[in-house]
Write a protein that binds this DNA or RNA. Structure first.
Lengths: 156, 156
DNA sequence: CCAGGAAACATGAATTTTCATATAAATCTT
DNA sequence: AAGATTTATATGAAAATTCATGTTTCCTGG
């Protein structure tokens, strides 16, 4: 007979990939998201503005994919941002169904300021994350995203 | 004079660490989260159950940290889950302020089923992600989380 | 040209989430 | 040991999100 105690079963959550991804995303974003809110924007609004810095004038559906926001939700966010003067909406002359979204001068000024802040924040995160490791994490994440989006992993 | 066109400015968003983390989390979770919903649970409810598999009987505040859900929101989720018979709430006899949350037998059965499914899903993700790379990503994420939570990166 | 269908957005009602604060129990202070 | 603080959870109203579906515009074959 064996008197020794069993090794405790290891916990599930802290070793689960989807938890690690969500926790890493949250932890890494916390500080900058607080900064965004201090500037009077909610995080989804900041995401819209960051996307528009890259692709000003894109249509709502494109923006929804790029910013990872569901379409009807994005529509409502954009309407609010329009009201606040951060973006303007114009229907596409070539296709009346499409609504193209543009940064206003005011919106662009804020967006550029925040993108600059975001770059600094990112550099601080990466450089504090011991030399070189920092570079690799972005590559790893890009590879993971590419793998997940392309392969579709057997259409379960 | 130089006739050559400038190289286009590289886009910000697709190379931004916080975007990569959020996008990786979303892409990796999509399939399993759909599975969770097909079982009649919303994602935050699944998170609560997964946490309780590890730490049944924990108090609301602990659970909130572990499941990354804000406290007052968690309270409401737990009340719903209690009503549905997935968990039960008992006030701690040692400290009347605390509410300890337990899986019911029915809740535990569902939680165990989903944890098993989650393990399978995770294995499929990792093994499809070319040999060995899979292992490393979890280590990288753990390191990042540990770094972010411990260091606090200068108290900006 | 027209009917049918698809694509792009908008909308409304039900539900959730957020934020500030209330309540209640434990702990500290003097 | 009474009062002041802190900790734990609950609550309510305002705001945001979700989901299904409506509306408008475009496209396609006959």
């Amino acid at each position: 007979m064996n008197n020794s105690v069993d090794a405790p079963t290891p916990p599930f959550v802290p070793n689960y990939l989807l938890y690690l991804l969500a926790a890493a995303s949250e932890a890494a974003s916390e500080r900058f998201h607080a900064h965004v809110r201090s500037k009077g924007l909610r995080v989804p609004e900041w995401r819209v503005m960051a996307c528009l810095i890259d692709t000003d004038g894109s249509m709502v559906t494109e923006l929804a994919r790029y910013a990872m926001i569901e379409q009807s939700r994005l529509t409502k966010i954009i309407i609010q941002m329009d009201t606040r003067g951060l973006v303007s909406r114009r229907s596409d002359p070539k296709d009346g169904r499409r609504v193209r979204v543009f940064l206003t001068p005011q919106g662009r000024a804020l967006a550029e300021e925040l993108v600059a802040d975001a770059r600094i924040d990112e550099q601080e995160l990466l450089k504090s994350f011991q030399g070189g490791q920092g570079d690799h994490i972005k590559d790893t994440l890009r590879a993971l995203i590419w793998h997940l989006e392309s392969g579709d992993l057997k259409q379960g």
